[in-house]
Design a protein around this nucleic acid. Structure first.
Lengths: 147, 147
DNA sequence: TCTTGACTTAAACTTGACTTTAAGTATTAA
DNA sequence: TTAATACTTAAAGTCAAGTTTAAGTCAAGA
């Protein structure tokens, strides 16, 4: 079972131009062509593309993803390089995770702050005197103002 | 205690040009000026800037952040709008968190895969036969190939 | 055969958030 | 007074990752 570029694009939610762009950049060397030169995407190709998207989401630039794919093509002699690359990505993603958690903590504080201000009908609330969840209290301590 | 733009930039790890750019875009209307027109950043300003960075990290564009700051300046009549905005941000960040977790799951699988392949000294491992952590097994089930 | 969608190269354009440059003026601490 | 740093406007440049356009050719299913 193979798919044309348009069907693949539809299936994966990616613009066909993007797929051609990836191909041009050397990210899709494994995609087979028909005798007439038409790209034939298969399930394995979809998994590669999902992996490319995954690597992109870790903050990896296209040229580094190409490097990884080149290593893959070179075979077993590059296994260590590829492993090291994934461990680097792991560190990067763990950092991302920490940052997103911190951001969520701040946003949760703001949601609490505005809920409270709206109940009070204005922003002049002395939040020290108000009952609040412990994680909000923890975050609040780090602020100079309650903005 | 106030700080010049250069000191502020240093303290926050932001380029002075970026701070002037934010000011020009209307993100820093609260920063006071000396009689001579020199910006005087104080601790409250730092907190505003940290909040701007937080909102940016949620994927919010500059113009939407400006909208929020305009609402803040308008006062209590915009409390609901600001609350709604933060709840939207909360949804966005929760989604980010889920995506980062999924990414980490994939990367963890790859780390496991390469560790295993390196022990086997090549990639022709029949991973079905190998002992693996449960979360790896779960992820692997969703793959067509072991790539 | 016809029509739809595929292919190619090559370049131009887009987006958002800066960053840099230029060119001159003003402030301020020592 | 002087040196360091600040200020201004305005425009141009940068960056990555696409997206679009053009202009023509080719493939393949009905």
């Amino acid at each position: 079972m193979t798919y044309l570029i348009g069907q693949t694009a539809e299936k994966l939610g990616i613009n066909p131009s993007t797929l051609r762009y990836y191909d041009k950049e050397g990210l899709l060397p494994f995609v087979q062509r028909s005798e007439g030169g038409i790209r034939q995407f298969c399930d394995t190709d979809f998994e590669w593309i999902r992996l490319i998207e995954c690597l992109k989401s870790t903050g990896m630039p296209i040229k580094d993803i190409k490097q990884f794919i080149d290593w893959y093509i070179q075979g077993d002699s590059t296994l260590e390089k590829r492993r090291d690359m994934f461990y680097e990505r792991k560190t990067a993603v763990q950092k991302q995770l920490e940052e997103v958690k911190k951001t969520l903590e701040i946003i949760n504080y703001k949601c609490w702050y505005y809920d409270t201000a709206i109940i009070a009908k204005n922003e002049n609330i002395r939040t020290e005197d108000i009952e609040m969840p412990e994680e909000i209290r923890q975050y609040k301590k780090r602020l100079v103002t309650g903005i």
